[in-house]
Structure formats: structure tokens, C-alpha cells
């Protein structure tokens, strides 16, 4: 870790003023500090935003609003989130460890960096960390890597769980920057790696995430998050699925489906959502609906199992939520 300047402003405007150049915002620090110790991120200035007024959890008829500095653990235990958006609470509770969830912020969660082992090891090439240096994962250990949205430059997965749930629920991110406020659908917030995997989202320089909103969706009560991994806790997803179902009379009226652990960004599956509409809530029907979920996947040497695992993850998640 290198020496760096440090600022802890009290207002959003002041934070934005102090950002710039090689600066980094510090919220929970669970990604930034970790990557600074590994020399993967080497900001010359750290702007601590924890004093900014970016807290608050609101659940009402308009939906859900989360301040960017809300801690994962506080959101996960909020009664309104738990009852009306169980997929969000579950995705949070299946993330990291309690200690990390107590620190990590919601805004920071959306911006966390990939867990690709080559990204985190400065002695290996990585286009995301050092543009143009190459991608060691293409020919290296890539069992955990992405199969959807990949490029010849990068096959790293997006690691967030809750982002998968939020993308399924059409969440928006509220942003505040030098040129004022704006908001973006979270699904559009993330970029595909293409030839520029170091550019992961559409944040402008110095821009901050100030909040997350989820539109009202009554049947989001019938939702759930399934995370499949080797270790039962404290591990990133091999595959995951965020599912919400509007079921009536044993038939799916509407569905929301997004998956994690397989994409270079949280991966919404609109075709699966459409294929589910009108189907009965049976395992066989789900299998048909997800048959093309992994179409277009580009498996690597060690993750050829992921397309099949993805389909099975979806059937399991749908079966579980369908029985609610």
C-alpha cells in the first residue's frame, strides 16, 4: 500500500470537489482497502464519504429507496425489505460474512470489483487492472469465471449478489456529480467488458452513487435468491438466481429473472421471463422455460459445467419460489 492523501468531507458537494485525478471514494472499505493492500488499486487520494447524509431506508407505495451508505446488514434486517422484497434481503444475507455486511455499504456493493484471481494478483497480466496487458484467465484457472457477456479481453464475473436481485426488480441508481443529479437503470449502469474491461460502469469522473430505488412491485413478495457455491457460506457464487413470480391458479402471470456468477455484469434473462408467462408452476414447465437461458454462453476450459448449472439453478430457484 502506498502513501495517499485523505479527506473526510461532510457534504456531497465538498466530496465531489475533493475528488478527481487518481482519487477513490471510501465507504465501507471492504473492497477498496483490500485492493489497496494488494496494490491493485493505488489511489493518490482517498475521500471518505461516511460523513455524508446518504442514509435511509424507505419502503412505501412508491417502492423501495436505499441510501447509498446504508450498510448491507441494516438493509437485510429491515422488516419492510424482508417482507416486500425478500429477494433483496436474501441476496444480501448470502453475501460475504456478517462482519463484512456490517461494514459494506449498498453503493459500494454495486461498485465492488471482480474476484478474478488474476485481477487481484499484480504479478499477472490483466486488462481490467492494467489495460492492454492481456488476460491470464483465458488460459489460466477459470472455473469460476463468466460465460455470458465475455470478450477476448476479459472473462471476469461481476461479484455482487444484491445487484442481481436489484436488476431483476428494475432498480435505478441515483447519481450525483459535478454536473448535478441523474439516475440510471441499474441494468444499464454496468458496461460489458468489450475491449475496455477497465471501464465497468457509466459513472462519470467524481460522480457518486447517492441512492438506489426499486419501483413498487406487489408480487415481489413472492421472490427469492438462490446462490450456488462450493462452500455453504462466505464464498462468491458459481451461479445464482434472483427470481420473482406472479402466480395465480398455478400459472405464471409474470416473472422476473436475473442471474449471477455467470455474467460479466448482473445478467437479466428477459427471454426466460417471457417463456415463463402462462406456464404452470411445475418442474417440467420450468425446465422448458429455461432451456435457452445459457444460449450464447462461451464456456472456458474449466467452467464448461456452468451452462448446465445455470439452467439447473434457475429450475431450482423457480421451484423454490413457486412453492411459496
Amino acid at each position: 500500500m502506498h502513501a495517499y492523501d485523505f479527506a473526510a468531507p461532510r457534504s456531497i458537494r465538498s466530496a465531489i470537489d475533493r475528488a478527481g485525478g487518481e482519487s477513490a471514494y471510501l465507504a465501507g472499505g471492504t473492497t477498496l482497502v483490500d485492493l489497496m493492500k494488494l496494490e491493485v488499486m493505488t489511489p493518490s487520494r482517498v475521500v471518505d464519504i461516511n460523513r455524508l447524509p446518504l442514509k435511509g431506508i424507505r419502503v412505501d407505495g412508491n417502492g423501495l429507496r436505499l441510501g447509498a451508505l446504508e450498510r448491507m446488514s441494516d438493509v437485510a434486517r429491515h422488516p419492510g425489505v424482508r417482507s416486500r422484497y425478500p429477494v433483496v434481503a436474501q441476496a444480501l444475507e448470502l453475501s460475504a460474512s456478517q462482519q463484512l455486511r456490517n461494514m459494506a455499504s449498498m453503493g459500494g456493493n454495486l461498485l465492488q470489483r471482480t474476484r478474478c484471481g488474476y485481477f487481484r494478483d499484480t504479478s499477472t497480466p490483466c486488462n481490467k487492472r492494467l489495460p492492454g496487458s492481456g488476460c491470464a484467465a483465458l488460459t489460466g484457472e477459470n472455473r469460476t469465471h463468466a460465460i455470458l457477456g465475455t470478450s477476448d479481453s476479459c472473462v471476469a464475473t461481476h461479484p455482487s449478489d444484491v445487484a442481481v436481485a436489484l436488476v431483476a426488480l428494475d432498480a435505478q441508481v441515483e447519481l450525483y456529480g459535478p454536473h448535478g443529479r441523474r439516475s440510471l437503470p441499474l441494468g444499464d449502469f454496468y458496461r460489458l467488458p468489450g475491449n475496455t474491461p477497465h471501464l465497468e460502469n457509466h459513472l462519470l469522473p467524481r460522480e457518486l452513487i447517492t441512492g438506489i430505488t426499486v419501483p413498487s412491485l406487489s408480487w415481489a413478495r413472492h421472490s427469492g435468491y438462490l446462490k450456488v457455491r462450493d462452500r455453504q457460506s462466505y464464498e462468491f457464487a458459481l451461479t445464482s438466481a434472483a427470481v420473482a413470480l406472479d402466480v395465480s391458479g398455478g400459472v405464471v402471470r409474470e416473472a422476473r429473472v436475473a442471474v449471477g456468477g455467470v455474467g460479466t455484469r448482473p445478467w437479466r434473462l428477459p427471454a426466460v421471463e417471457q417463456a415463463l408467462v402462462g406456464r404452470r408452476t411445475t418442474e417440467a414447465a420450468y425446465e422448458q422455460a429455461v432451456a435457452h437461458a445459457a444460449d450464447g454462453a462461451r464456456p472456458l476450459a474449466h467452467n464448461a459445467f456452468k451452462p448446465e448449472l445455470l439452467r439447473r439453478t434457475l429450475v431450482r430457484a423457480l421451484t423454490t419460489v413457486g412453492e411459496l
Binding site: R115, G117, R120, G140, E141, D230, R231, Q232, S233, Y234, E235
Partner: peptide, 14 residues
């Protein structure tokens, strides 16, 4: 390839 405690998985309580 898994020379750290994030990638080298040992059992947790669960």
C-alpha cells in the same frame, strides 16, 4: 492459482 484465503476454500461453520 488459489494462493490466498479467498480462493483456497477451507470449511466454514455452515
Amino acid at each position: 492459482a488459489a494462493g490466498n484465503l479467498g480462493d483456497y476454500l477451507v470449511p466454514v461453520n455452515a
